[in-house]
Simulated assay, not measured.
Amino acid sequence: MPELVLPTVRLHAAFLECRDDWGPGLHEDGFGLGADDDVDSPGGFAAWVHQLVRLTHWAGEPCPDEKHGSPRWIVEDGEVLGGIVLRHIFDDKIGHIGYGIRPLARRRGLASWALGEMLGEARAVLGLDRVLILCLADNVASARTIERNGGVLEGSRDTGDGPVRRYWIALDR
């Protein structure tokens, strides 16, 4: 049974296996991995995880840091299957939630399940009544995931990295 967990150094090897499953590049949505982040060395990985967890929402008050959010890893039997993040500071260009599932774990409903969990957190912890979620225009699987969770297509925009679909999901009270 999968679970959402805070990033942890205990899963270093499992995280690297997940990252390697994606292949080179920074397209692991939901992990907050930047071009300068050293996740290969134990010390670099520990520093990166510490930064992710430090920015996690704990006290009921949003932090003014634009990177502030609730990152979670999707883990099952010690294996990192993907990541998801609820961003606490709204940015119209990236939306409230980003997620990604490693290629070997796709087509199991993990993204839909994790998104549903984070929608509950967006409502309960942040008090949001709706969230914006974006996906690449050609990512049919992600569009279906968003639509399964109540996403209503607002339209498409070009972000400079290519066209994206913009979905709003109403969070019923």
Rank of each mutant, 00 (worst) to 15 (best):
A105S: 15
A105Y: 13
I101C: 09
E61F: 08
I133L: 15
V53H: 03
V75E: 10
R106K: 14
Q51E: 12
W48R: 09
P2L: 08
R144N: 09
S112A: 14
L55T: 00
T56F: 01
K93A: 08
Q51C: 02
G25V: 09
S70Q: 14
N149D: 03
R173E: 09
H88T: 14
G34C: 04
A13H: 10
P71V: 04
L115Q: 03
R108P: 01
G116D: 10
D21I: 13
R157N: 00
G30R: 11
S70M: 15
E121D: 06
I133A: 04
P42V: 07
E117A: 11
T145K: 10
I146N: 04
G78I: 04
D77N: 15
H96I: 00
R102C: 10
D138P: 01
V164F: 12
A13F: 00
S70L: 15
G95R: 11
Q51K: 13
D20K: 13
M1P: 08
S112M: 05
W113P: 05
R157A: 14
A105W: 13
L104D: 08
G109F: 09
T56D: 05
L16H: 12
P42Q: 04
H50T: 12
C63T: 09
H12F: 01
L55V: 02
A111I: 13
T56M: 04
K93L: 03
G32W: 02
Y167I: 05
L126K: 03
D138H: 15
H96Q: 06
E76Y: 02
I94L: 07
P62M: 02
I97G: 00
P103E: 14
L16R: 15
E66A: 13
I97V: 13
S156Q: 15
D77A: 15
Y99V: 04
H96P: 02
G100S: 01
H96M: 03
D77F: 05
R72D: 00
E79P: 01
R148N: 13
I133W: 07
G44E: 04
L33A: 07
G30K: 10
G43I: 02
F45T: 06
D20I: 05
R106P: 03
Y167V: 11
E28Y: 08
